[in-house]
Design a protein around this nucleic acid. Structure first.
Length: 865
RNA sequence: GGGUGGUUAGCUCAGUGGUAGAGCGCCUCGUUUACACCGAGGAUGUCGGGGGUUCGAAACCCUCACCGCCCACCA
C-alpha cells in the first residue's frame, strides 16, 4: 500500500472543488463507458435559461440530472446526454431588448439584422457564464456535445418538420386577434404583454329604438362604432324573444343582429354584450361562430378611421370620451361606473395600452397530434413520475387548442413560407429555394416549435444516423412540472409525429419548484430569491446538491433556507471527520474481507445495515425518489455509522490486535462503498475521501456498489438493538443523575447473556468502570429488558430525579399497556385482526406488564424523601 | 368557472389501515484522544372542522373551511 497524504484536519470545500473538477475534465472521466454492452441510458437535459445567471431552479434541475448521470455511469451504462443552450428562448432576446431600452432604444431602431447580431453576442456571453457556473455545481454533462443551436443542423430539422406538417395539412394560416402596440407599431407576443390593473370605466349603452331596445355594458364604448352584433346567453329569459331580430346601432345608424352565444355570462353586466369582432379576442371568436362582419375602425396608430362618423381622426381615448358624451346627450347611457378597475395589457417596453388587432397567423392543428400524445401515456409507453401528475397532462393534452406558432419577433427560426405577388404561397423544405420574387414571412416560429424537436434533432434527425437508431427513444427527461405543458407536451406531439409514432422518452420525471423557507414563491419583487453561487461559495457545492436532492420529492415543491444548506455542510464535515478517524485507525480496503463467522455482531450489523441502505437507496434513486434516498443515506452515515458503529468499535481499536484489524477492514469496506453510493450526490467530498482511502485515481469511473447477500445477519440487528437500548438507558440515568459526561462511575452488569462479550465496549461508551474490589455500594439500579445494571454513586443519588424518571417511565408503560389491553379485550379485534398483529399486541402487553412491575419495585426501593 | 395538489411538532416536510416521524429550531448538560459545522439527554402534536366505513383511520369515503398551482375568463 502506498503512502497516503494525510487528510487535512478541517474540511474545506472551497479548496477541494475547483482542482477536482479540473482533474475530472482533464482526464476525460465524463465520457466513460462508450462501448457498454448494456442498453444505453439517454437523458434529455433542458436548457438553462440564458440570462447569464444560474437560477436556483436550474441548480435543482441539473443536480438531479447529474445524480442520475453519475449513477448510471458507475453502473456501467453508456450514458448519452442531450444538452442544449437556450437556442431561441424569448428570455434571451428580452434581455437584449431591456439593454436597449436602458439606452432609450428599441429593436426597431437597430433594424432586424443588427438586432439579431446583438442577441447572438449576448447568447454566447451569457451562455459561457452560465456553463462556468454549472461547473461549479459539479455538473458532469459534457457540454462540448452541445449543438442544439440555430445552426445548420437544427435549421434543417425545423424546415423538415414544418414542411412535413404543412404537407400533412397540420399547419394552416388563419386570422386572429393579436396584441398591437400603437406606439412601437408592432405586434407583441404574449410574453411581451404586461397586465396591469387600470382604472377604466364600465358604461351601459342602450341600443335600438321603440320596443326593440337592449342595453349592453362595456369598458370600451368607442368600439361600438365597429359593432357587428349584440350577444346574449341562449337561455336568458330576459332576451329570449329578441334573439334573431335586429336592433339599431346608435351613432352609426346601422341595423345589427341579436345573437345567442354560450360565451355570454348572464350574471355579468346587463347580460347583453356588444360584439366588435375585429377589435376583441372574444368578440372575434363569436364573430367566427356567427358569421359577423369584421369591421375595422382604427388604424395602426390607434386613430379612429373609416367609421363614417364625426369621430374619425380622433385618438381612441379621445373618441371614448366623445362617444360617451354623445350617447349621454341622446339619453342612451342608463348607468356608468367610474373608475372601474380591470386588467389591461400594456407594452412591456413603452407601457402603451395595447390594442387588439386582426392579423394573419400560422397555426398547428393539434387534434391528431395531441391524441397520439395522450395515448402514449395512457397505454404506458411513456411513464410520468409521479403518476399523480398524469391528470394534469391529460387535462391539457386532451383539450389543447390549435397552437399559434408565429411570433412577431426577430430572433428565432424564421417561418419558411414565401409569398408571391399574386398571393401564392410556397413552403420551402431544406435546400429548397423559393421562386424568384417571392418574399419570406417576416415572423419567426414560437420557441417551443423548435424546442419540441430536441430529443431527435440532437441525434441528427432528419438524417437516419446511428445515434438516432441507438439512443431514440431517450430514457428519461428530468424537469420541473411547470414546463410540462409548454415543452414536454410539445416534444411528445412532434416526437410521435416525426418518429413515426415512437415516443421521445420512456419516462418523464417531474420535480417541483424551489421556494423560499416559508414555501412562498421566489420573486424579485418579494426579495426572497436566493443565489446558488453564493451558497456554493459559503457551504460548498456538495452541500447545495445534497440539500436540493434531499428536498426533491417527486412532483412537489421544496422550500429552501440557508440553514438547510448549512446542515448539509455539517453532514459533509461529519463524513470528513469520520473518514479521518477511520484512517487513523487503519481502515483499509487491502486484503480479503474477514469471513462473516469471524466477525462480532457490531461488524456483522454494520455490514447488514449497509446492505439494506444500499438496496433501498438504489431502488429509490431508480424511481427518482431523491428525497427518500438522501434521507436513508444520511441516517445510515450519521446515526448507524458515526454514532453507533464508530463508538462501539473504539474499544476494539484501542485494544488492537486481531479484532482491531478485522474492524479496520470492515470499516474500510463500508467507507469505500458508502462513498461510492454517495458520489452522485456529493461528488467532490467523496472523491477526496475515497481516493485517499483507496489510493485510486478517481471515484467518477468506479463501479457502483453491489449488495453482498451473505452479509445479511438478522441476529446481529437484534443484539445491537439491545446494546443500543442498554447504552441509551445508562446515558439517560447518568444525565438524570447529573453525572458529568467525563466522570467515570462504578457499575455492575448482570444477565447480559449473549451480550456479555460487548460489556467492554458498552462500558467504554458510557464510561462505567467495574468494581474490581467488590466493595462498592451499588445503591441504584436500572433494568433494560432482562439485563440489570447497578450503579455505585457513592450514596450521592439524586432521589428526586430518580423518582421522576421512574414515575415517568411507569406512566408511559401504563399507557402502552392500557392500549394493548383494550385491543385484546375487544372481541371484534380478536376475531378480525390478522394473527401477526394480535401476537404483536400480546407481546406488548406482556412486556409492558413486566416493566411496570420492575419499575414499581425500583421506585419502592428508593428511600423516602 | 374547469382541472389539480395540499392542510401532520415553532418552521419546512415524510408518513396510503395496526403504539405519531425527520431536518432545522428550542431546553438541560458536556470540550471523554474523528468531529462544538460536535456529543449526550429532554420538551413539543385532540394529524384543518364535521360526519361515515372498519375490530382499528393521519391514512379510505362524504362534506365544509382555508391555502397553492395550471388552464380559461374578466364584455
Amino acid at each position: 500500500m502506498s503512502e497516503r497524504p494525510e487528510l487535512a484536519a478541517a474540511f474545506s470545500p472551497a479548496e477541494l472543488e475547483a482542482p477536482l473538477y479540473q482533474k475530472w475534465l482533464a482526464a476525460g472521466y465524463f465520457t466513460a463507458n462508450p462501448h457498454s454492452a448494456k442498453p444505453p441510458f439517454t437523458i434529455v437535459i433542458p436548457p438553462p435559461n440564458v440570462t447569464g445567471l444560474l437560477h436556483i431552479g436550474h441548480a435543482l434541475d441539473h443536480t438531479l440530472q447529474d445524480i442520475l448521470i453519475r449513477m448510471k455511469r458507475m453502473k456501467g451504462f453508456e450514458v448519452l446526454w442531450l444538452p442544449g443552450m437556450d437556442h431561441a428562448g424569448i428570455a434571451t432576446q428580452n434581455v437584449v431588448e431591456k439593454q436597449l431600452a436602458i439606452q432609450g432604444l428599441s429593436r426597431h431602431d437597430l433594424g432586424r439584422e443588427a438586432f439579431v447580431e446583438k442577441v447572438w453576442e449576448w447568447k454566447h456571453e451569457s451562455g459561457g457564464a452560465i456553463l462556468a457556473q454549472m461547473k461549479r455545481l459539479g455538473d458532469s454533462v459534457d457540454w462540448s456535445r452541445e449543438r442544439f443551436t440555430m445552426d445548420e443542423g437544427l435549421s434543417e430539422s425545423v424546415l423538415t418538420i414544418f414542411k412535413r406538417l404543412y404537407d400533412a395539412g397540420l399547419i394552416y394560416r388563419a386570422e386572429r386577434i393579436i396584441n398591437w402596440c400603437t406606439r412601437c407599431l408592432t405586434a407583441l407576443s404574449d410574453i411581451e404583454v404586461e397586465h396591469q390593473d387600470d382604472a377604466g370605466e364600465f358604461v351601459q349603452v342602450t341600443y335600438g329604438k321603440g320596443d326593440m331596445q337592449i342595453t349592453v355594458a362595456t369598458t370600451r364604448p368607442e368600439t361600438m362604432l365597429g359593432d357587428g352584433a349584440v350577444a346574449v346567453h341562449p337561455d336568458d329569459p330576459r332576451y329570449a324573444h329578441m334573439i334573431g331580430k335586429e336592433v339599431l346601432l346608435p351613432l352609426v345608424n346601422r341595423m345589427i343582429p341579436i345573437i345567442a352565444d354560450e360565451l355570454v355570462d348572464p350574471e355579468f353586466g346587463t347580460g347583453a354584450v356588444k360584439v366588435t369582432a375585429a377589435h376583441d379576442p372574444n368578440d372575434f371568436e363569436m364573430g367566427m361562430r356567427h358569421n359577423i362582419p369584421f369591421i375595422i375602425i382604427m388604424d395602426e396608430h390607434g386613430v379612429m378611421r373609416g367609421t363614417g362618423t364625426e369621430f374619425d381622426g380622433m385618438d381612441r381615448f379621445d373618441a371614448r370620451v366623445a362617444v360617451v358624451a354623445k350617447l349621454k346627450e341622446m339619453g342612451r347611457v342608463p348607468s356608468e361606473k367610474r373608475p372601474y378597475i380591470h386588467s389591461v395589457g400594456h407594452c412591456s417596453r413603452c407601457d402603451t395600452t395595447l390594442e387588439p388587432r386582426l392579423s394573419k397567423q400560422w397555426f398547428v392543428k393539434v387534434g391528431p397530434l395531441a391524441k397520439a400524445a395522450g395515448d402514449a401515456v395512457r397505454d404506458g409507453r411513456v411513464k410520468i413520475e409521479p403518476a399523480e401528475l398524469e391528470p394534469r397532462y391529460f387535462e391539457w393534452v386532451d383539450n389543447m387548442h390549435d397552437w399559434c406558432i408565429s411570433r412577431q419577433l426577430w430572433w428565432g427560426h424564421r417561418i419558411p413560407v414565401y409569398y408571391g405577388a399574386d398571393g401564392d404561397i410556397v413552403v420551402c423544405g431544406p435546400g429548397e429555394e423559393p421562386p424568384a420574387g417571392y418574399v419570406q414571412d417576416p415572423d419567426v416560429l414560437d420557441t417551443w416549435f423548435s424546442s419540441a424537436l430536441w430529443p431527435f434533432s440532437t441525434l441528427g434527425w432528419p438524417a437516419e444516423t446511428d445515434e438516432l437508431k441507438k439512443f431514440y427513444p431517450t430514457s428519461v427527461l428530468v424537469t420541473g412540472y411547470d414546463i410540462l405543458f409548454f415543452w414536454v407536451a410539445r416534444m411528445m406531439l412532434f416526437g410521435l409525429f416525426a418518429m413515426d409514432g415512437v415516443q421521445p422518452f420512456q419516462t418523464i420525471a417531474l420535480h417541483g419548484l424551489v421556494r423560499d423557507r416559508f414555501g412562498k414563491k421566489m420573486s424579485k419583487s418579494r426579495g426572497n430569491t436566493v443565489d446558488p453561487i453564493e451558497f456554493m461559495d459559503k457551504y460548498g457545492s456538495d452541500a447545495l446538491r445534497f440539500t436540493l436532492a434531499r428536498g426533491a420529492n417527486p412532483g412537489s415543491d421544496q422550500a429552501l433556507a440557508e440553514e438547510w444548506i448549512a446542515g448539509a455542510r455539517n453532514f459533509a464535515t461529519k463524513l470528513w471527520n469520520a473518514s479521518r478517524f477511520a484512517l487513523m485507525n487503519g481502515a483499509t480496503i487491502d486484503g480479503p474481507l474477514p469471513a462473516m463467522d469471524s466477525l462480532d455482531d457490531v461488524n456483522k450489523w454494520i455490514l447488514t445495515r449497509f446492505n439494506e441502505t444500499l438496496v433501498e437507496a438504489d431502488q429509490l434513486l431508480e424511481k427518482y425518489e431523491f428525497s427518500k434516498a438522501m434521507e436513508l443515506i444520511y441516517h445510515f452515515a450519521w446515526d448507524d455509522l458515526c454514532d453507533w458503529y464508530l463508538e462501539l468499535s473504539k474499544a476494539a481499536f484501542a485494544a488492537g490486535g486481531e479484532p482491531a484489524a478485522r474492524s479496520a477492514r470492515v470499516l474500510g469496506y463500508i467507507l469505500d462503498n458508502l462513498l461510492r453510493l454517495m458520489h452522485p450526490v456529493m461528488p467532490f467530498i467523496t472523491e477526496a475521501l475515497w481516493c485517499n482511502l483507496t489510493g485510486q485515481e478517481t471515484l467518477v469511473t468506479a463501479q457502483w456498489p453491489t449488495p453482498i447477500l451473505s452479509h445479511n445477519d438478522d441476529g446481529s440487528k437484534i443484539n445491537i438493538a439491545k446494546i443500543q437500548e442498554i447504552i441509551t438507558e445508562i446515558r439517560r440515568f447518568r444525565s438524570d443523575q447529573g453525572v458529568k459526561g467525563s466522570a467515570k462511575i462504578l457499575a455492575r452488569f448482570s444477565n447480559l447473556g449473549a451480550l456479555s462479550e460487548y460489556e467492554a465496549a458498552i462500558r467504554h461508551i458510557v464510561r462505567c468502570d467495574s468494581d474490581v474490589t467488590e466493595t462498592g455500594n451499588f445503591a441504584s439500579k436500572i433494568d433494560v429488558g432482562s439485563v440489570v445494571i447497578e450503579f455505585d454513586l457513592s450514596g450521592a443519588i439524586d432521589v428526586k430525579a430518580e423518582r421522576d424518571r421512574l414515575k415517568k417511565d411507569i406512566v408511559q408503560a401504563e399507557k402502552d399497556r392500557a392500549t394493548a389491553k383494550v385491543k385484546l379485550e375487544n372481541e371484534g379485534f380478536m376475531a378480525k385482526a390478522p394473527l401477526d398483529v394480535v401476537t404483536e399486541i400480546r407481546e406488548r402487553l406482556a412486556q409492558t406488564t413486566s416493566s411496570i412491575e420492575r419499575l414499581r419495585a425500583a421506585l419502592e426501593q428508593l428511600p423516602v424523601e
